[in-house]
Amino acid sequence: MFLTIDPVLPDDAAEMLKAGDQVMITGELLTARDAACGRLAAALKAGDPLPVDLAGRVIYAVGPTPAKPGQVIGSAGPTTAARLLPYLEPLLKAGVKALIGKGDWPPDAATLFARYGAVYLAAVGGAGALIARTVRAAEVIAYPDLGPEAVHRLSVERFPAFVAVDARGADLYRQARDRWRRGR
């Protein structure tokens, strides 16, 4: 399924996506991992203005390597999403409609995605060089002092991901494990 983000996720998109769907994303992503999510959540808590409006946006949890000469961006695969759990609700409340990362979440997270009608998309962890090829432009737009953890605006074309938690709270990881588990 193709997803266009321009620069927000279309209103009906989150509803349509089902856990297990493969998607190809074209459009604009914002990057934020541990340190940037922490700052965004702190700003939201304090009622301070945000460096970028999060309503409808898609956040990609990544800290890329520096671009080599001639490259748009260095390697840029997903980081573990579950570490962002303390910041998840404030971000969803601020309007974030999708988060891209890798790995499963504790059970509470699925409830939050369902409550806010948002989705969690998983990209392939460790495929940083391959994924970087889908990035057409990259620019730091906030918190440059955080280095690789700064907020970047990425323009991507056919970025591959799986719907891992959908807006009804269905969880691909749990389904997968129920299906394949043989021992214990």
């Binding site: 392939v124 962890g125 389904q175 997968a176 494990r177 299906r179 394949w180 588990r181």
Partner: peptide
């Protein structure tokens, strides 16, 4: 355990 590649079974 059934976790599989990238945890997708």
């Amino acid at each position: 355990l059934g976790i599989g590649p990238q945890g997708m079974g």
